[in-house]
Amino acid sequence: MSAMLEIENLSVHLDGPDGRRLVDDVSFDLADGQRLGVIGESGSGKSLTALAVLGLLGHPLSASGSIRLSLGDGDTVDTVSAPGRRLDGVRGRTVGAVFQEPLASLDPLMRIGAQLAWPLRRHRGFRADALRRAVLDALAEVQLPEPERIARSLIHEVSGGQRQRVAIALALAAEPRLLIADEPTTALDVTVQAGVLELLQAAVENRGMSLVFISHDLPVVAGIADRVVVMRGGRVVEIGDTRRILTAPREEYTRTLVGASRALDDLLPARPAGSDGPTSGGTE
């Protein structure tokens, strides 16, 4: 099995004289088709690591080390050192991303259909009628009801769970080989969360994609990832198979995390089996 993503000695620091390090000497890798969970508290550097993989760290942040993304044809690109124009071609086709806040991650003034059309056009060459059908198919694939109506809507006109489904459709549109999901369910209702997670899981399985799933919620990560990276204060605390991390954590911090979520689980009779029905609000 070849590597999809290899991160070696990645550091992210603030530009300027003091140059504080926000991500410090992080290394991990991800095999083709594997699902990796990245877990850590706020400020642990997990989102910055994701942005670095996407090559989207702008001023005042810069990265050092190397991040090798496999392009699928045996070639790799280093997103730390590659020039921006080269990365424009890589993003979308090789790597796509879903972010935490779906309302913010879609343009408020552009119809959903038009936003979806652009990556389908650029990366997959659809035009005219075929493009229209591809947009509707993309919306149907993320199990949105009435794709026609959603395509004509602005993002504030659909519900929270539907927004995140649109964002996922957008990330999947260019058929990336690696999907980075940065806290994709954190901003959603618990009942909606389960549906979105199921959808992500199905998409990853059907397309044979690799997945980096970032979250601070251990049970969610455990449900979706084969392997888990635990981060804290910009460093990697522990890496291991999900089962091993859950049952036999080696580091003190990991043990606290596992203990905390187990304590919570014990309090609850069972996790609510949620479904992602059409929620009210916003559609008036």
Partner: peptide, 14 residues
């Protein structure tokens, strides 16, 4: 805004 990041993530040039 996140939607700019999201758009650049799908390979949108400047």
């Amino acid at each position: 805004q996140d939607f700019v990041t999201a758009s650049r993530t799908s390979g949108t040039g400047t």
